Amino acid sequence: MRALLSAVFLALAMTGSVTAYAETPPAAAKTKAAYKVQETDLGTMLDDPASKAILLKHIPEIVNSPQIEMGRGMTLAQLQQFAGDQLTDEKLATIQTELDAVKPN
């Protein structure tokens, strides 16, 4: 098995494929989608310091809630049905505007 992998690697190196791949990052790594209040789960945003700071700024009572762990799998839009007074459409739009500037981890 090791000999086969060595032979494959040597063949790729001789054709320049290994060098070309190493110099060209995958397209997905070049552009990452911004977080979306309609699509990104709360847990993902809480795990990223930049997006968590935005959430703490706008909805600290939700982020600091003892029940926050139960909502980690939900989007902010889904959480709106349980906290509509704190997650108004206007508040979600404001959060989204700031999230648009954040590049996910």
Rank of each mutant, 00 (worst) to 15 (best):
Y35D: 03
P60Q: 06
T31S: 10
M45T: 03
Q67W: 04
M70G: 04
K32M: 04
V63W: 08
A50K: 12
E23P: 00
T19K: 09
Y21L: 14
A28I: 12
A77T: 11
P49C: 12
P60A: 10
K52C: 03
V63A: 05
G73N: 13
V37L: 06
T24Y: 04
A28C: 05
K57F: 05
M70C: 00
A83L: 14
E39L: 01
L87N: 02
P26V: 15
M14Q: 10
E61L: 04
D47I: 03
K52W: 03
A28K: 07
I54P: 01
E61K: 08
V18D: 01
F82G: 13
G71W: 15
A29I: 14
L56P: 00
V37N: 02
A34C: 01
T24R: 11
P26A: 15
T31H: 12
T44I: 13
P26W: 10
T31W: 08
L56D: 13
V37Y: 06
V18S: 14
V18C: 10
N64M: 05
A83E: 10
L87V: 05
T31C: 02
Q86V: 07
R72H: 11
K57E: 13
D89M: 08
P60Y: 06
T44C: 01
Q80V: 11
Y21V: 13
G71V: 09
G16D: 14
T40A: 00
D41A: 06
L46Y: 02
P49D: 12
Q86G: 01
Y35T: 07
A27N: 02
M45W: 05
A29P: 01
I59M: 14
M45G: 02
T19Y: 12
L79E: 09
K32G: 00
A53S: 13
A27G: 03
V63P: 05
T15P: 06
T44K: 11
T75F: 09
N64G: 07
